[in-house]
Nucleic acid binder design. Structure first.
Lengths: 217, 217
DNA sequence: AACGAATCGGACACCGTGTCCGATTCGTTG
DNA sequence: CAACGAATCGGACACGGTGTCCGATTCGTT
């Protein structure tokens, strides 16, 4: 957040307007596709002139990017809030799923849009391995940060003898894939079931897959 | 396939050109986003006038739809070819993963695009339950047909005592989500690992999750 | 009250879409 | 071979969205 403390009312207003544009854009992008929304519509809905939008964001793409970044921080904040309480790896996994599902439920269509944006889908464990340069422009961080959470959670579970021992990178990738798949399907589901329940089902399945004990050959 | 046998050379040519346009479009859509490709570029690349493209496809959207349908049939054909040999549920699951991965590797970026198209992501088991009307316009069928394969495979595995017994709809959804997640991540991976290996890893994980035997509470 | 930053709003050129139609190619048919 | 007709070409058109620019105006600041 490279932003000085806005002690001037002017700066506060500036930030407020910018945030408002992002909020409106996120909503509209989520309701219909990105292609069906004109800058004009966003501006009008946000109570701002079209030319003003271009003061804050150079492109339509940059506006979209800003929306995705907001989604990202929103997710991580929500996750961090509920993270500490359950130290058990199982509970943390459930927290992760529930947090992500909450985000999806908030604006389902927008998630689908986020997927299309390049590098958004880097939940690969390799990505974690080859050191996610924070300089990576923008969105890969979404996947990367979550991948870190998953990996920490997994190695902890293994250390506690609760999970079977796999290559951490592989395990992270598998959990990440399951998470991503569950997100995608839920985002596309016109009538998704209750959030806790859905999260619990997926979570249990993953835990089964990770459970210590010998496989049936 | 409501198409009469093309006994006239004229019809053959017509189909040939149409196919060529679809192939080119699929490639270009896959290389860059759909938004970055103009009809002009597709037409030129296919050796056809832009106005001619509009003879075959009313919209850009309809062209995209045709591309997705081709992807669909290509997948199902490839799957059907390797389906019979392994009667074991485990082998069929592996076949499924490998077939899908093959499709991804063929044109990775295009898959990401396919996800954005509405109703493409209906791998929900509920969808299978509430009877997939074949009249469903277009793309939901991708998910639905695969969901059917998965569900058949699963109930068979349960009957053979190889899988633990879950609600078939739930199990189908879980496997579908895993499949979808693995596809997505692989589609976004700039350097995906060897196909068999990747399929095997994911497949094993799913089998662990399905394995008969009591869970660790 | 005067200054200046931010906003407005309307103009502009540019590009892609989808439509249309006359000219032309090319397989077909007598 | 010649004439027909379907398909293609290619260039025109209107329309709408993008991104830029700039003078006029609002509004917080000093």
């Amino acid at each position: 957040m490279p932003r000085k403390t806005p002690d001037q009312l002017r700066d506060v207003l500036r930030d407020f307007r910018r945030d408002q544009v992002i909020d409106v854009a996120r909503r509209l992008f989520g309701e219909r596709g990105s292609a069906d929304i004109s800058m004009e519509e966003i501006a009008t809905e946000a109570g701002v002139a079209r030319s003003t939008v271009y003061v804050y964001f150079a492109n339509r793409d940059e506006l979209l990017r800003a929306c995705l970044e907001r989604m990202h921080t929103q997710l991580l904040d929500g996750l961090a809030a509920a993270w500490e309480e359950g130290a058990e790896p199982e509970d943390r996994l459930r927290t992760l799923f529930e947090g992500v599902f909450a985000l999806i439920d908030d604006s389902p269509a927008f998630f689908r849009l986020a997927v299309t944006a390049e590098d958004a889908v880097a939940v690969t464990a390799d990505a974690v391995q080859r050191g996610a340069s924070p300089s990576t422009p923008g969105l890969a961080l979404i996947g990367l940060n979550i991948a870190r959470l998953i990996q920490d959670l997994y190695v902890e579970g293994v250390a506690a003898g609760r999970f079977r021992s796999l290559d951490p990178a592989t395990a992270t990738a598998l959990i990440g894939q399951m998470l991503f798949g569950a997100m995608s399907i839920r985002a596309g589901d016109p009538a998704p079931g209750p959030r806790n329940e859905a999260a619990a089902v997926v979570c249990d399945f993953v835990l089964h897959g990770l459970a210590a004990g010998q496989s049936p050959h």
